[in-house]
Amino acid sequence: MLSERNAGKWLLYLVLIVIGIITLAPFAWMLSASFMPTGQANTYPPRFFPGSITTEQYEALFSRLKLLRYLLNSVIVSVSVTIISLFVNSMAGYAFAKYRFPGRDRIFRLLLAAMVIPGQVTMLPLFLMLNRMGLINTYWGIIIPGMAGIFGIFLIRQYVFSIPDSLIEAARIDGAGDFRIYWSLILPLCKPILVTLAIFTFMGTWNDFLWPLIVMTKDTMYTLPVALANLMGEHAQDTELMMAGSVLTILPVMLVFLALQKYYIRGIMMGGVKG
């Protein structure tokens, strides 16, 4: 009986490890190939370790292929969208949760209903609008449409509900104005949900592809994913170079995720309970 249970236990670990290998092997191979000299990844059987370690692929990306510029573009748009949308969404979420005004519930329901509209529907007119405003190939082309998000407003509203009205009343009696209450009372109390929302927004903007592909047509303005997809067109044969580019695209989001994974997982749960 005991040995049967033990066998079951080992089988469980075996299965879990095999799944782990399958999920991580592509990353391991990517990392390893990125340190190989040109041509070494195209061998049979596939190599899992570089014969000799070289950073020539990374050097080529930074010196010849303007990777630093793309990295900078990605950082600028992702950080800007995250910061701006946090303010915009938290103000709106707070107002929906704690103020009474005519039309509040109707507007909120309209916003929720609008979540069913896929973003792709807006892209053609949005492109024409931004084109007319001269914002194609500028950071604003990505920042402006990302400024406010319905899901973000929803998350903050749910969270602010849990803040007792008495706290707000007390602050008001102490003479704090509306903005002061939002800034020095609500925002600090909302810190956990703001961190969650910040990671989601940052990673979403960093990983986004279709919209940056549409608005960033000049090569100096590419974000990393767009640059990588374009690099694929010209350097499809240079496996090792492409792997180095993939490593650099993935690394920043991986680090953010590893540092703040608790908050990220919590965000998924909130989305999960929502339905």
């Binding site: 709106a92 402006i144 400024m147 407003i153 903005f179």
Partner: peptide, 23 residues
Amino acid sequence: STRAAWLFLAPALSAITVFFFLP
């Protein structure tokens, strides 16, 4: 109080209206 609410909502609602609903 209503005016404060609308001020808080203004950035989000105008962005969503102009860059989402209108498109």
